[in-house]
Design a protein around this nucleic acid. Structure first.
Length: 416
DNA sequence: TCTGGGGTCCTAGGACCC
DNA sequence: TCTGGGGTCCTAGGACCC
């Protein structure tokens, strides 16, 4: 039996979703004019997270700085994102897709794969895909592309062909016609660096990559990646549609400052802020982390990173923060302005730490109590945020930010 | 024009053990 | 005294995805 895989991809997801919300409020449809969604439009460092088709036509793309887009079109419509709304749109979207097949893999907030092998035939696949696409548009108010193929790679490549609101087919025997003429950078997993490397070697199209000998390819990109690229360029992909939700393997939080920072107190406050976020998230998900990493970004975008292993896995803000502080002092010269700081945790476990050490930091009880209060306040702030959202008030207060404000005002001090 | 935030996986070298 | 090789863990760094 042939495999039939759908890849469904929301067109300019964040922009489409905000547009449906504005339309519901009786406002003009921003999809019809050059428009973009960005984080905080007033922040000079914010970048575009999605662009409308008219905006794309004049050269405005996702990940472009807002200031650059405004230079292209000073009358560009800029709207602020709304994560609460995104989440609701995403849930409705995934639920509707799931009604077509339970074998669903969510690939990101706005993309999923469906294994349709038992639900349609190669002959009526286009018809079924079109029905799904139209049903999303009618019921949810935004458009999707559906790619249909004999594996996940081909389905994903197909959904990328022409947008928006389209169904495309890419069976394995169509690979030479439909996929090989495309630039090699269009191939999934062939990003900027790999593309440059292949171009420099004279490989411009996916077809040329498919014909390249393994020896040369291995020398260019390493053995494992070479095998994957070679298989993919030939349209082959055996990977199944994974219905199990994978547990997170790492958590991280980072903040870019409005201006580059050099004052140790400012930087320490930011470090505390990201430590609070990361530690709160792992406690929420009942994890403890064995590895803590700290990273900084400088003015020129170069990065420095350091990681360390804790004596025992921890979910305590102060433990993570103090490890990050130590690594920062070992990494940063104290003079060069920093653009960003971040903290990550990995090597996660659900096991409770065994608190047998006679040498446990006597402050640990205080630290835990501090975290407990933090979690309580964050939960209250989250409830208040949702309530305000339902009442259509400003919904954008990040719960952890509320706690941070108390830190700033001196009502709550960061753990030493 | 001046570049966010959150993830995954792979590689390579050094330390250490057997 | 000097030698080999495999396995595992750790860290640093780089690539990709949305």
């Amino acid at each position: 039996m042939p495999r039939i895989i759908f890849h469904i991809d929301v067109n300019s997801a964040f922009l489409s979703w905000i547009a449906t919300k504005l339309v519901l409020e009786g406002k003009p449809d921003i999809r019809l004019v050059p428009s973009v969604v960005s984080g905080d439009p007033s922040d000079r460092r914010s970048i575009i997270s999605a662009a409308s088709i008219p905006a794309k036509k004049i050269g405005i793309k996702a990940a472009m700085p807002v200031s650059m887009a405004l230079r292209i079109d000073p009358s560009l419509v800029i709207v602020q994102g709304d994560w609460e709304w995104y989440k609701r749109c995403s849930e409705s979207f995934i639920a509707l897709c799931r009604s077509y097949s339970p074998v669903l893999q969510q690939f990101s907030i706005d993309e999923c794969f469906l294994d349709m092998s038992l639900r349609c035939t190669p002959e009526n696949a286009v018809e079924v895909a079109t029905r799904l696409k139209d049903e999303v548009k009618q019921q949810l108010g935004f458009t999707v592309n559906v790619g249909v193929g004999s594996n996940k790679l081909l389905a994903k490549m197909a959904s990328d062909f022409e947008k928006p609101d389209k169904v495309h087919i890419l069976w394995e025997n169509e690979v030479p016609d439909k996929m090989w003429p495309l630039p090699v950078g269009d191939l999934l997993w062939c990003g900027k660096k790999t593309q440059e490397r292949l171009n420099a070697y004279g490989i411009k199209t996916i077809g040329q990559l498919a014909a390249l000998g393994m020896g040369s390819l291995t020398r260019l990109v390493g053995q494992k990646f070479a095998q994957q690229l070679h298989e993919n360029a030939n349209g082959r992909d055996e990977s199944p549609v994974e219905t199990e939700i994978q547990e997170a393997k790492s958590y991280s939080a980072e903040r870019t400052f409005p201006q580059d920072l050099v004052k140790p107190a400012d930087i320490d406050r930011a470090l505390f802020y990201v430590a609070s976020i990361v530690a709160h998230r792992i406690r929420r998900d009942d994890f403890r982390a064995s590895t803590v990493s700290m990273f900084v970004k400088y003015k020129d975008f170069s990065m420095a990173q350091k990681q360390c292993t804790l004596d025992q896995p921890s979910d305590v803000t102060a433990v993570i923060l103090n490890a990050a502080r130590r690594m920062l002092s070992e990494t940063w010269d104290g003079v060069t302005p920093l653009r960003q700081v971040g903290i990550g945790v990995s090597k996660l476990t659900h096991e409770s730490a065994i608190q047998m050490s006679l040498f446990e930091d006597p402050k640990m009880e205080y630290y835990r109590e501090w975290d407990r209060q933090y979690d309580e306040q964050a939960a209250r702030a989250e409830d208040a945020r949702l309530l305000a959202y339902e009442r259509k008030k400003q919904p954008n207060q990040d719960p952890v930010y509320v706690v941070l404000r108390e830190v700033k005002s001196g009502k709550k001090s960061p753990p030493e």
